[in-house]
């Protein structure tokens, strides 16, 4: 395990050095990422300025939801980038190289790239989250802060799990990968507003099947001390970061199944 972490850190450091070879164009990538992800908040701000509130939620409150899900997604975009681009490796045959190495395939795929430019999305999420917290003038305990951090990391794992599923799918067909965008990019779009505003099956899907609600909705219910219209008790909110971890581990099992399939078909 410790050995694995050391290897992963070496991968990350190599990846970072590769990306920083051309600092000017790298900076541009970061700024571009910041802009394209930041406009999302601009649209939310525009709607609030016209309508005043989103149901029972104010703009600073929604800012918390928004900031947390964007930071979580940025982490997975950076760290699980290897899974996101795996279909290219499969198509070109470079995935074979990974099978030729005596290490876990998942670790090596993670090591393909740590995409630093996602720091743009992360930064704008952090700024929005900070702004939300200050505007609400609430006093946050250390435990609550810890819950926020843990929930963001759990969210990073959850989205990473989705990228793992996407990569697994590419062992069967590269045509269908865009379906996963429904849950990744679509998930971010969905979860940047409180999940309680959605209806029926849609909300259930993102609460129970792909538990996006655990990234920000449940933790924030506890922190904002808000009675949950979905009826989840606050003590459960404190456990919600674990959902991402469990989800990620499950996805890795699916991944291993996919690798075995690749073994027998050669894709």
């Amino acid at each position: 395990m410790r050995d694995g972490i050391r290897l992963y850190l070496r991968y990350v450091s190599m990846s970072l050095r590769s990306q920083l070879q051309y600092p000017a164009s790298f900076l541009m990538l970061v700024v571009g990422n910041l802009a394209i992800t930041g406009i999302e908040f601009l649209t939310i701000w525009a709607l609030f300025s016209r309508f005043g509130s989103l149901g029972e939620w104010s703009l600073p409150e929604v800012a918390l939801f928004y900031g947390m899900v964007h930071m979580a997604f940025a982490i997975s975009e950076a760290a699980a980038r290897g899974f996101d681009i795996l279909h290219r490796q499969v198509r070109s045959g470079d995935f074979d190289r990974i099978l030729l190495r005596p290490r876990s395939t998942a670790l090596q795929v993670m090591g393909l790239e740590f995409q630093l430019l996602r720091v743009g999305r992360f930064a704008q999420g952090l700024v929005v989250l900070r702004w939300g917290l200050t505007s609400l003038k609430m006093s946050i305990t250390f435990a609550e802060l810890l819950l926020i951090v843990a929930a963001i990391i759990g969210g990073g794992l959850l989205f990473s799990g989705l990228f793992v599923l996407q990569a697994t799918l590419s062992f069967w067909s590269v045509d269908s990968l865009e379906v996963v965008n429904l849950t990744t990019y679509g998930g971010v779009e969905t979860a940047q507003a409180p999940i309680s505003i959605y209806r029926g099956y849609f909300r259930s899907f993102f609460t129970w099947v792909i538990p996006l609600a655990t990234i920000n909705y449940f933790p924030l219910m506890a922190i904002l001390d808000h009675a949950d219209p979905l009826g989840i008790p606050h003590w459960l909110s404190w456990l919600s970061p674990l959902a991402g971890l469990v989800f990620f581990v499950l996805c890795l099992q699916v991944w291993n199944f996919g690798v075995r399939h690749y073994h027998s078909t050669g894709s």
């Binding site: 989103l54 149901g55 507003a193 505003i197």
Partner: peptide, 11 residues
Amino acid sequence: IMVLEAFYLST
């Protein structure tokens, strides 16, 4: 549309 609906219901 669902987000917009929630906004429209608020005013």
